[in-house]
């Protein structure tokens, strides 16, 4: 027997919670969300697929093609010709130093401006925050000259120093916001117990500030790890070049060897994807803690 209910017509006069309309809405919802996810992912899947095929396959008619067998040799070639390992080590050194120095400098500044009593507190804080408005690109030309005069070009410092500077304002903002939630009584009692101000700052307050430290570290890590334009300006040899340069190495040279180029791009993207898989929670928190309060 065919009735209205089995045709899905019930929803139009029945209760709205269980009928066809909410189910339809749900399908629609998931269709849109899935389409967008595909839009965000498909170019990357295409990249992964063709990095495992032969270069000539790129000129076929298929969208995607099952790699059979997968051409792992592309990755081997990308690894050696793209200087992946030396560039990776440079990236680790530069990003690691940047994160440590940024956390230290921003935490001390935030502590001084939110806890210590001094006349210029607000002025100095405002001065550092002004840095948020200065575009990186406007400092490229003068810094190139400045670093050249000081013999700093093509060294780790030529990147670490500006990286720290440009990550400071946001990091200080996050720390200051967090310190407002830490009760002052903590370091006051520590001082009464005979702690120095440095002891109170690093041994008592810093451990409580751990969530903010993690957030600042992750945000600084992502920005320093992916930075390209300053590295492209201040570095002139392979000695200090960072991971993104592996991709650049293939522009021009191996124009026909697309598969190796694609494999190289995958290798460069991989470390940050692994980090993201484990730490993406902190990126979300960083945005909530910092940007929306500013």
């Amino acid at each position: 027997m065919v009735n209205g209910a089995s045709l899905g017509l019930k929803a139009w006069n029945g209760p709205r919670r269980t009928g066809t309309w909410p189910r339809l809405k749900r399908y629609l919802l998931y269709t849109v969300l899935t389409l967008l996810a595909m839009g965000q992912l498909f170019p990357l899947i295409w990249l992964l697929d063709y990095s495992l095929l032969k270069s000539g396959d790129l000129f076929g008619t298929e969208f995607l093609k099952l790699p059979n067998p997968p051409q792992w040799s592309n990755y081997l070639k990308a690894w050696t010709d793209g200087l992946i390992l030396p560039y990776f080590i440079n990236s680790v050194i530069i990003t690691g130093s940047t994160v440590i120095l940024t956390v230290l400098a921003a935490f001390m500044l935030a502590f001084a401006c939110s806890r210590m009593q001094w006349k210029l507190s607000k002025a100095v804080y405002g001065f550092v925050m002004l840095g948020m408005m200065i575009p990186i690109h406007a400092t490229l030309l003068p810094n190139f000259q400045l670093f050249a005069r000081l013999g700093m070009l093509d060294t780790y410092w030529s990147l670490i120093i500006p990286y720290v500077a440009f990550n400071l304002p946001f990091s200080t903002l996050v720390f200051t916001g967090f310190l407002q939630t830490v009760p002052r009584a903590l370091e006051e009692s520590a001082l009464i117990d005979g702690c120095t101000i440095w002891g109170a700052m690093f041994r008592i307050v810093a451990p409580i500030t751990k969530p903010a430290i993690v957030t600042v570290s992750v945000m600084t890590f992502v920005s320093a790890w992916n930075e390209f334009i300053m590295a492209n300006t201040y570095l002139s040899s392979d000695r200090c070049r960072t991971l993104p340069f592996s991709v650049i190495k293939f522009i021009g040279y191996y124009t026909a060897d697309y598969a190796t180029q694609f494999a190289c791009m995958m290798l460069v993207a991989l470390p940050i994807l692994v980090v993201y898989a484990f730490l993406n929670r902190y990126i979300t928190e960083g945005v909530t803690m910092g940007a929306l309060r500013g």
Binding site: L101, L104, A105, A106, M108, L109, F111, A112, C113, R115, M116, Q117, W118, V124, F127, V128, G131, I134, A138, T139, L141, P142, N143, Q145, L146, I161, P162, V164, A165, F166, L168, T172, L191, T196, I197, W198, A200, M201
Partner: peptide, 29 residues
């Protein structure tokens, strides 16, 4: 301890130095 000038200077100096050197100096240059 909360208004110890020397301690404050040491806390503020690194951050201010980074900003002065890599952001403010280039703008004036």
């Amino acid at each position: 301890p909360f208004s110890d000038g020397k301690a404050i200077a040491l806390m503020v100096l690194p951050a201010v130095a980074f900003v002065l050197f890599a952001m403010v100096a280039p703008v004036f240059l």
